[in-house]
Simulated assay, not measured.
Amino acid sequence: MKPTTPAAEDYLKTIYAHTEWQSEPITPKALATRLGIAPSSVTEMVKKLAAGGFIAHVPYGPLTLTPAGRLRATAVVRRHRLIETWLVRELGYAWDEVHDEAEVLEHSISDRLLEAIDTHLGHPKADPHGDLIPAADGSTDQVPSILLADAPPGHAGTVLRVSDRDPAVLRSLADAGIGPGSHLTVLDAATVLLPAGAPHPFSPDVAVAVWLTS
C-alpha cells in the first residue's frame, strides 16, 4: 500500500507527532482518540499500513513507524509546518488559526510550491508553535526539553514549543506575551516569572502544553 491518501498520511503524521516530544509509543486506542474516529476504523487502516511496510505492530500492542513510514510521516509533517509558518509570516494569520488550514493544504500543494515556500521563508527550522520542521531527508535537530508541568520550582528555561491542540491555550499565552523564545522561570506549580520580571499564573492546560529547555 502506498500512503498517498490524506487519511493514510494523517495516520502516519499522528504516530510520528505522538513520540516527537516524549518516548512512549502510541496505542491504537490513543490513535483513534487523537484522530477522532472509531477504533474499528483505526484497526483496518493499521492493518493496511502494516502490510505496506509503514508501521510495525503486533495485535493489541503499540504502533511504531518503520524507516519507510517515518520518512513518509516527516514529509507530511514538513509540509504542514512550512504551511503554518507561511500563513503566519506572510498572510497575517495568528498562531491559533493555522492548524486547520494547514491540514487541508498539506495534501494538495505541489512539491515545487512547497520548496518555493521554504526558500522564500529562509528555510525555517521551526513553525510558529516551536515544532521542528523536518529537513527534506526527515532529519531534525531536537533539543533536550522538559514539560512545564514537570519543571521544578526554580527551573529557568526558554520556551521551545507550545502544543497547538487547544487554540484557547494559544490565545491565552499570546495575550501574556509567551511563545517560543520566551524565557521563563518556574516559581511554583502554578506560577512563572515572565521576562519582564512579573509573576504570571498558569493553568493545568498550559502546564501540559509548554515545553522548556531543560
Rank of each mutant, 00 (worst) to 15 (best):
V46F: 04
H129Q: 12
D188C: 05
P128M: 04
P3F: 11
E84A: 11
T33E: 14
T191M: 02
T64Y: 02
G138M: 07
E101F: 11
S108I: 14
W211I: 00
D100I: 04
T74D: 04
V42A: 11
T213L: 04
I178S: 05
A50C: 10
L147K: 14
L113W: 06
L160H: 10
L121P: 01
A209S: 15
H80N: 09
R34V: 03
K2T: 12
D137S: 10
A176E: 05
H57M: 05
E24N: 08
L173M: 13
W211T: 06
L114T: 02
V88N: 01
A17C: 03
E106S: 02
Q22H: 13
L170V: 07
G154M: 06
A32W: 03
P180Q: 04
L87W: 01
P6S: 13
T185I: 10
V88F: 03
V206G: 01
R89A: 11
T140I: 15
Y60F: 12
V88A: 03
F202G: 03
V88I: 07
M1T: 13
A68G: 04
Y60L: 13
V208K: 12
D10F: 06
V208F: 04
G122M: 08
G154H: 06
D137C: 11
D131S: 12
L35N: 10
V192L: 06
I83E: 01
L187Y: 02
L87T: 01
G157T: 07
A189D: 15
I37M: 07
D10Q: 15
K2V: 12
L113T: 14
E9M: 15
L105I: 10
K47N: 15
K125H: 05
P67T: 09
E101H: 12
G157I: 05
T4Q: 12
H155M: 01
V210W: 04
S23F: 02
H200Q: 13
S40H: 07
H18R: 08
T191Q: 01
E97V: 01
H18L: 00
T27K: 11
L35Y: 08
K29D: 12
I55W: 06
S40N: 11
E24K: 13
D164S: 10
R78Q: 08
H183Q: 14
T4E: 15
F202T: 06
L173R: 04
A174D: 08
T158S: 09
